[in-house]
């Protein structure tokens, strides 16, 4: 069932990760994501795997859920790995070749690193953010972190509100898609057979009702918000104010130390200064 997709879903709980301030988690995941792209020595990979495993343990989210979250991208991942292996050329003799392809050691290493990075990226950011942070807390944190931008007239609150609403309605939309699909299946619709054109046409009976109800819902929501006198963030107070606690400072410190260690591990042999190299790799990879 589509509603069984776990990627991007929040799992309520009371683990230490659940209790951290969302801003701490946002900053940590930023470091984590940059870190993933810095990895280039076996030692760094081992360190990263350990960090990720401890994060999973700290979140008390079951391994099954985590694996299920990776499942949807496995096919894409395998496909990119194959492309990487086939199309990367390296120095020296190829390991073996067939047809027009030659497989080099570099290709295999690169494919492996790429897959590892993507998986870490997904696991890390889901464990740090989506699985353990409610959408509301997430956008609150984001708004607070970005609030300095308000000085240069960036409508931060508006973006945060839009994001909250979008996140809030994803599960609703998924549920609705499933209901409508079931309804059309009951009327003999078939989404899995026939030519591509036929299958694309079969989507019309799903998409039209989905659009209609989404627009209707958006309008109702807007009216409901206006009825409660919503008019943006000017003069608006918060019921749950975000507050840094001791644990947030601890986690941020540990995170920063690990990050610094990672930079040293990754670029210790480089001719360029450590930071310069890190930036170069970072921007190159992104």
């Amino acid at each position: 069932m589509i509603s069984d997709i776990t990627l991007g879903q929040f799992f309520p709980g009371s683990s230490i990760l659940h209790r951290l301030d969302p801003r701490t988690k946002l900053l940590l995941s930023l470091l984590y994501i940059i870190g993933v792209f810095l990895l280039n020595t076996p030692m760094a990979f081992i360190l990263y795997t350990l960090i990720t495993l401890s994060l999973i343990l700290a979140s008390r989210i079951s391994m099954r859920v985590i694996l299920k979250g990776i499942k949807p991208i496995v096919i894409v991942l395998i496909f990119t790995m194959i492309i990487n292996i086939l199309l990367t050329s390296g120095e020296g003799e190829p390991l073996f070749s067939f047809l027009i392809f030659a497989v080099y050691k570099e290709g295999i290493i690169r494919a492996f690193f790429m897959a590892y990075r993507v998986i870490m990226l997904i696991v890390g950011s889901s464990v740090l953010l989506t699985y353990t942070t409610s959408p509301i807390a997430l956008t609150d944190g984001l708004e607070s972190l970005l609030s300095p931008l308000k000085l240069i007239k960036v409508p931060v609150h508006l973006f945060a509100m839009m994001m909250t609403i979008a996140l809030r309605f994803i599960p609703t939309l998924i549920e609705e898609t499933e209901t409508i699909m079931n309804a059309q299946k009951s009327r003999g619709a078939n989404f899995t057979e026939g030519s591509i054109i036929k299958r694309a046409r079969a989507l019309i009976p799903i998409l039209v009702p989905l659009f209609v109800s989404s627009f209707k819902r958006a309008e109702e929501l807007a009216v409901a918000m206006e009825c409660r006198c919503y008019r943006g963030d000017v003069g608006r107070t918060k019921m749950n104010k975000l507050k840094y606690r001791l644990r947030d400072i601890l986690w941020l410190t540990v995170g920063a130390l690990l990050f610094a260690g990672l930079i040293l591990l990754s670029v210790k042999s480089a001719e360029l200064s450590a930071l310069g190299e890190a930036m170069r790799i970072l921007f190159y990879k992104i």
Partner: peptide, 24 residues
């Protein structure tokens, strides 16, 4: 006929919407 079936209508006219099932 599912609960609240009115949200499943999609076609341009009532006629073609009712005809969707028989057509299938």
């Amino acid at each position: 006929v599912m609960q609240y079936p009115e949200y499943q209508l999609f076609d341009e006219t009532v006629y073609s919407d009712i005809a969707f099932g028989p057509k299938n």
